[in-house]
Design a protein around this nucleic acid. Sequence first.
DNA 1: CGTCTATTTGAATGTACTCAAAAGCGGTGG
DNA 2: CCACCGCTTTTGAGTACATTCAAATAGACG
Lengths: 195, 195
Amino acid sequence: MTASLKTNIETILGRPIEPVEVDMFLKLMFEKNFEKKDLLAEEGKDCSYIYFIVQGSCYSYFVEPDGDKQVVQLAIEGNWISDLFSFFSDKKAIYAIEALEPVKVLALNRHSFEKACDTIPWFDRFFRILIQKAYIVSQNRLAKTKSDEAETRYQELSKAHPQLIQRIPQYLIASYLGIKPQSLSRIRKESAHKA
Amino acid sequence: MTASLKTNIETILGRPIEPVEVDMFLKLMFEKNFEKKDLLAEEGKDCSYIYFIVQGSCYSYFVEPDGDKQVVQLAIEGNWISDLFSFFSDKKAIYAIEALEPVKVLALNRHSFEKACDTIPWFDRFFRILIQKAYIVSQNRLAKTKSDEAETRYQELSKAHPQLIQRIPQYLIASYLGIKPQSLSRIRKESAHKA
DNA sequence: CGTCTATTTGAATGTACTCAAAAGCGGTGG
DNA sequence: CCACCGCTTTTGAGTACATTCAAATAGACG
């Protein structure tokens, strides 16, 4: 169960860590389960946890004034998800996080986060790199959204994260790519013709 | 000269700090000057500094396969700029950083960064928040690029950072907004009519 | 099976793009 | 001081990609 967390930490830090060290970290977190459609965080309410997804999938989004849902992040097991703005500022969440399947997570609250910073030697660095990576991904996505066509973006996503295409509904993939479900449907039709 | 750095740190940390503490930090950095069009970092080469801009302006960008420049960040005095990917990975820079005016910066290299982490109590936290903020801005920009029209994005930028509109050439603003210079020109014409 | 939600398809529209060229602006040298 | 050059911004015309609106089909779930 905790294997995926260990792997995640080692990937981020770029070096192996001792099981004991993972246990220290695990003691600060608690397991939590959600059903499909449950909300792990709600827009407008405080988001006081950072989640590591052990099993299942979920996504974060916000709702536009016109009612349109905008997908911010898609995440399956082995990934972290939260509304960091809310978590670190104690302010209301900008995003909602919803389970797409039954989800098992490890949750870290603000108090435990502080404690992890103070007591686990590699935690500061780990977390900094985690955010850095997220930041770099975000900047890349921004660049791609501007320059590439929707079809290219879809194909790159398919190649980079085929699991997402399998498991996440198409209208959420569309939103994540920055297009409407109808457009993605047409793109897929086109791609099929070509192939 | 160092006043702007102190202000920046206090803004990020959300609390006042002692001048002595700023001095500790300053000792780890060195001043550097660039002329207009000088490169603070080059795509494909190692970017071994994080820059705090004391005076002047610059921007980071990358070049598409088809030769198109894509603006990633616009920055004037009081902001930080770097290619964090390169800085933290020791790999080749993804972005170039170019001075738009004569620029005076405080540069922090990798060694000093490590030292700052170890010796300045608030530095870890400071830097984490700095990246977090950048991450949140990036996610927001991503969301806006998808949902809002170019005209709205331009008007929001004008309102939020009027100094940028004044000092940065229009074709770079256009790229930052994710549109072509011609389109921005038309948008400005339209806006003028309305107003 | 029926209902609710997701996906597909069609037709018309719109926003931004490309290509092309003209006008504006700033700096340099004759 | 003006002429010229390079670079930025503007303008025009035609085009492309994605959107909207609308409706039909397909799938999931009770």
